[in-house]
Amino acid sequence: MDLRVSSYFDRSKKVNINVNNMKIEAYEGECLAVVLFVNKIKKLRLSPKKKQSRGMFCLMGSCQECAVLIDDKKVISCNVFIKDGMKIKVGDFDKQQNKI
């Protein structure tokens, strides 16, 4: 079942994004945090001390929990809008960036 509500708005064109080398379909301009959530990619990063999975929480740019890596930079995904070919990394940031 597509979790998109299409009664009031038409989306723009369909595009593909890359999440941890997995291809995900979405529509251009949709909110990244929401797209990840509805595609069941809910575990976005690990908490600092206990290393527990964390994900989107407030969707308002306040809690900072929905951070992902784009171009090796930490950004909050609720403030990012889908563009064709976007490459996103989720998971244990420490492991992923540990090439010193």
């Binding site: 600092p48 930490k74 940031f93 420490d94 992923q96 960036q97 540990n98 010193i100």
Partner: peptide, 8 residues
């Protein structure tokens, strides 16, 4: 102070 980062 920055946010937590991997070892840099």
């Amino acid at each position: 102070v920055s946010e937590r980062m991997p070892k840099i």
